[in-house]
Computed example of a mutant assay.
Amino acid sequence: MLGRRVFNDENHGNDPKADDFKNMILEAMVLGGVFNISDFIPSLEWLDLQGVQAKTKILHKKFDAFLTNIIEEHETSNSKSEKHKDLLTTLLALRDKGDDEGNKLTNIEIKTLLLNMFVAGTDTSSSRDRNVKEEDIQNLPYLHAVIKETFRLHPSTPLSLPRIASESCEIFGYHIPKGATVLINVWAIARDPKQWDDPLVFKPERFLQGSDKCDVDIKGNNFEVIPFGAGRRICVGMSLGLRTVQLLTATLAHSFNWELENGLKPENMNMNEAFGLTLQRVVPLSVYPKCRLSPNVYSSSF
């Protein structure tokens, strides 16, 4: 908008002016959405029973002073150096010269446009400038699909823990004698081409609404994907483990931008697995995180 930073972050984001501006934005959103009796009983408007008008006028003066200062600083800086190609420069040019039809903007109109941009572009973004909370998880369907697909392709335990057949039985033509040790190949079941389209492809969309597997869960109710086992001997830590993975994954994805080491591209990653009691990567994943939220979000949480 302005071709420069409005607030400096030399103090790790603790610029007092930035805090003042943030408070102004928050107050504008509160005043804009407050239940105002005068809106429903116009005859009482002149009384300003809740003080909404008075507070709005005070806030307007603050914004006006803030925006006036921005315009004056912009004009001064542009007069001393090459002009920036930014929104404010364009607006000021329309004020001074007008458009092809001679229409000119006024300072009031410019400040109104800037205010709309600041408020609309700041509050809607800053409201997401926080850590993921556990209650957010239920509203993240694609995250759930990613977690399901990850457990399908890469179950933490590729073979279920050993079980002993309590009675002789027959399963799909195979005789299982009493006392036999049984190992369930969880890894192979979840890659069965009879049950899954493109079974070797990582495709979370297969679990989204409208797909044929949208109702499949990973909690032992659907036998085509049982990363935690199923039945009475299902993993007792399933609920805690699943919540932990969901929250941790959401937090890492939301709080950081990630880069693979040495410029490696995702399609060239070595996804080979080393089988054991638990499933591991042959080549450990090495990535670089870069903070994508405001510094204060990390200082209060990590």
Rank of each mutant, 00 (worst) to 15 (best):
N69G: 00
V287H: 01
N221M: 13
N23T: 06
A190C: 03
F66I: 15
S156H: 13
I71G: 00
E109M: 07
M271T: 04
K265C: 08
G32S: 02
W258G: 09
K133M: 15
K104L: 10
H12M: 01
E273G: 11
V225A: 06
V283T: 10
R95C: 12
V34I: 03
P193W: 14
G98V: 11
Q50C: 04
L143E: 10
D64I: 15
P227L: 12
G241D: 13
N78M: 07
L247I: 04
H254L: 13
D100Y: 14
G179D: 12
H60Q: 05
G220S: 10
S294L: 01
L279R: 06
S127Y: 03
L59C: 00
S81Q: 05
N11E: 15
T76D: 15
I41D: 06
G276D: 08
M24V: 07
M238P: 05
A190Q: 11
L49Q: 09
E205K: 00
G210H: 05
G276S: 02
K104S: 05
D96N: 06
M271D: 10
D19H: 07
P155S: 10
P227Q: 12
Q280M: 07
E259V: 03
V287W: 02
S168T: 06
S301A: 05
L143S: 04
I41K: 03
L159C: 08
P295G: 04
I226G: 10
G220R: 01
N131S: 10
S211F: 14
L208E: 13
C291L: 07
K265T: 11
T181W: 08
S286A: 12
D198V: 07
V119N: 02
F302E: 04
G121H: 11
K219C: 08
E149P: 07
R163S: 10
P193K: 02
T251V: 08
Y174M: 11
P162L: 01
F302W: 03
E109V: 14
F172Q: 13
L159Y: 11
I234G: 01
I164K: 15
K61C: 13
N257I: 10
P42E: 10
D9V: 00
A65I: 07
M1E: 09
E101M: 15
N270S: 12
Y142I: 01
A190P: 07
D39Q: 06
S125Y: 06
R281E: 08
F223I: 13
P227G: 08
I171T: 07
L143I: 15
T249D: 13
P155D: 11
L153M: 11
T68A: 08
K219G: 02
D99W: 06
L260D: 05
E73C: 11
Q280Y: 15
A230Q: 14
N107T: 07
S77I: 03
S43G: 02
F66Y: 05
G32I: 03
D215G: 01
P266I: 11
D20C: 07
R130D: 09
K219W: 10
K17Y: 04
D198K: 00
S125M: 08
D39C: 01
S211R: 00
A120E: 08
G173N: 13
K219R: 02
E109G: 00
N139W: 00
V245Y: 12
I71R: 01
H74T: 06
S38T: 06
K57L: 09
T181V: 09
V182C: 10
R128Q: 08
I70T: 09
L94A: 01
F275V: 13
L114R: 03
F223W: 11
